[in-house]
Nucleic acid binder design. Structure first.
Length: 267
DNA sequence: ATGCCGTATGATATACGA
């Protein structure tokens, strides 16, 4: 029996209830981690999402910006909402699943336009955020930890995670300093990139296409910003991974698409 | 690299996304 864990930056959960229903029909995620819900907790569309089969819902929202949530068919335990970089924003939510599997859902700062921490506070925040997350996991590192880290990490680390490595080297999301910061995070708990575990690095794969491109599919100038990582204790449990590219073509789409990973179920 | 689109907001322009 497998468990299917998905991550999706929905860019407003209130506008994406139908899209989430469609994902439930097509891919049947057991656990769905959302980012950029953009809504305060009181206005989260809890009922509509419960109706889709998610009996267990945890949220960490704020007004207008950010916001993360975990929707689950399976019971959730030990819910935590951590602040990072001393800010009160809603960019993290963690829960435990059966067998002590600990699931962390992150929305890492986008970083603004200028890839220079001296000139751009948002970029500095992004780098600081990744460094802090790396330190946090490094301090908790243990061989038997069964951890899953998902989310919109806002970095496309590999050459084939972007449509043109060369043309994006100075574009926020693919600059060497961000890739290095993400590598620190990756090494902090010897993570495995679940998508690249199944899809070779020679193959281009994206999870985000700008709204501004007229024909996203034709130009296909995407980036892989959304990730699912697991710690070594869970790597043997990996069963499959899929980036749901077609979701970018659905009605009123998010600019990100879901990433779904299957693992042999815990317990 | 730009695009000039989509979302939210005490809104009818502005901030933000990346």
């Amino acid at each position: 029996m497998d468990i299917r864990i998905a991550t999706w930056n929905v860019n407003s959960v209130r506008l994406r209830v139908d899209a989430i229903a469609r994902l439930v029909e097509s891919h049947a995620p057991d656990v769905l981690c959302l980012q950029e819900t953009k809504v305060i907790d009181d206005e989260f569309p809890r009922k509509s999402l419960t109706r889709l089969g998610f009996e267990h819902i945890e949220i960490h929202g704020e007004k207008g910006y950010n916001g993360v949530a975990i929707l689950s068919r399976l019971p959730l335990d030990k819910v935590e909402r951590k602040g990072w970089c001393g800010k009160p924003d809603s960019r993290h939510l963690s829960v435990t699943l059966r067998d002590g599997w600990e699931l962390h859902n992150f929305y890492i700062p986008a970083g603004g336009d200028v890839p220079d921490p001296e000139q751009n506070d948002k970029f500095a925040h992004k780098l600081d955020f990744m460094a802090e997350v790396a330190r946090w996991f490094a301090a908790r590192r243990h061989d038997n930890n069964r951890l899953i880290l998902v989310g919109d990490l806002n970095v496309a680390p590999l050459e084939n995670d972007v449509w043109s490595h060369k043309q994006l080297l100075k574009v926020v999301s693919h600059t060497p300093v961000e890739v290095a910061a993400m590598q620190e995070m990756y090494d902090s708990h010897d993570w495995t990139d679940a998508v690249r575990h199944f899809i070779p690095v020679s193959e281009k794969i994206y999870s985000w296409w700008s709204y501004r491109a007229r024909e996203w599919e034709k130009s296909d100038r995407g980036r892989r910003l959304d990730h699912v990582w697991v710690t070594p204790a869970l790597t043997p449990m990996l069963r499959g991974a899929e980036v749901v590219r077609e979701a970018r073509g659905w009605d009123r789409p998010s600019d990100h698409v879901p990433v779904v990973v299957s693992l042999q179920a815990p317990g």
